[in-house]
Amino acid sequence: MIELKDVQKQFGRKKVLNGISFTIEKGEISCLVGVNGVGKTTILNAIMNLTPIKKGTITIDGEPLTPELYNKIVFIPDASISLPHFTVQQSMDFMNDYYDTWNVKRAKDIVKFFRLNPSDKLRDLSKGNQAKVNLLLGLALDVDYILMDEPFSGIDIFTREQITEVFSSYLVEDRGVLITTHEINDIEHLLDKVILLDEGTIYKEFNAEVMRETEGKSVIDVMREVYNG
C-alpha cells in the first residue's frame, strides 16, 4: 500500500498541494483526475522522491522510500526519459544493468506486443512509439506499484487503444497502479478508484463501480458535478 498523509507542497508562495491524503492498494487501478495539470504530476514526483514536500508523510508498504525500493515501485513520466541516441535495446540493457527486478522475458513480450524494433534509435521514433518505449521500460520491471503520468496525452488513437489494453492485461496484474489523466472518457471502465483533485486538495475519492451501483452515476457525471457545481 502506498499511503500519503497530509502531504503539503509549495512552489514559492503558491500552495500546490494542500494536505493530500490517500492510499493506493495492490491489485487496484487508481486514477488521479484534475482539470488543471497542477498538482497531479507533483504528487507522483513527491511519491518517487523527485521533489521535496513541505509537510506530511509518504510511505510504501509502511516504509519511507529508499533507493532500494525503486526496484519495487516504478514511475513512467509522460515523456521519454531514456537517452535520445540510445536504441530501444540499449535502453533495455541500461535498465537490466541496474534493476534487480528487470524481467528480460517480459520485456521481450512487451516489445512484441507494442511491435517495437529493438534496433531503432529513440530519437527516430514517432511520438506514439516513444510513449510505448517509455511504458516498456517501466512495465518490464517486476514491481509492486506502477505510477503513470498522463499515459494517453498527445498520442494517436491506435496507440491509445494499445495502451488501454495494457490496463486489462497481465502487465498490471496484482500490481497497484496509479495514473493521472485529464481525459477519463476512454478508461473509466478500467478504473477501481477515482481521486478528484482541485487546487491542491482532494474533492472526492470514490470507487467507480460503487458509484455506478449506488448512485447510477458515471465518473464523468461526478466530475461534472464537482467541477461545474
Binding site: 487496484e28 471502465h189 463501480e209
Partner: peptide
Amino acid sequence: RRQMANQMKINPNTVQR
C-alpha cells in the same frame, strides 16, 4: 478473470466481482 478482462477490455476486479 484475466483473459475475460482482457477480452472485454475492462478491469479484472470487475470480472472477479
